[in-house]
């Protein structure tokens, strides 16, 4: 009987450790995404939504959420943030914030 309990406990600990391992891997994946995305790739994104990205853009007076070419009034639940950047402007100085989702 004791042997079975021990076996069960060992199995449980292995399952828990594996869960944490995958949890950590996912966290690292997110981290790398956030740090190593080239911000210049997304500088051209604007309020017109003429592209297939999912992003939120604001210049602190206006704000738009673009979902693959469509303007949405609310951020849907099924998206996760992958990148956030505060740009200084494109051709001229006009600061804007972009939050990219996937």
């Amino acid at each position: 009987m004791r042997g079975w309990i021990l076996l069960f406990e060992v199995a449980l600990s292995i399952i828990i450790l594996i869960t944490f391992y995958f949890y950590l891997i996912n966290q690292n994946f997110y981290k790398e995404k956030n740090i190593f995305i080239d911000e210049e790739e997304f500088r051209y994104l604007d309020f017109s939504c003429n592209n297939s990205y999912i992003y939120y853009i604001t210049n602190f007076t206006e704000k738009v959420f673009c979902y693959k070419g469509n303007k949405l009034s609310e951020i849907p639940d099924n998206v996760t943030k992958i990148f956030e950047y505060f740009y200084a402007g494109k051709e001229k100085y006009e600061p804007f914030l972009i939050i990219l989702y996937k």
Partner: peptide
Amino acid sequence: DELISRSNN
């Protein structure tokens, strides 16, 4: 890491 990306920005 969040801090590092904010300071890079």
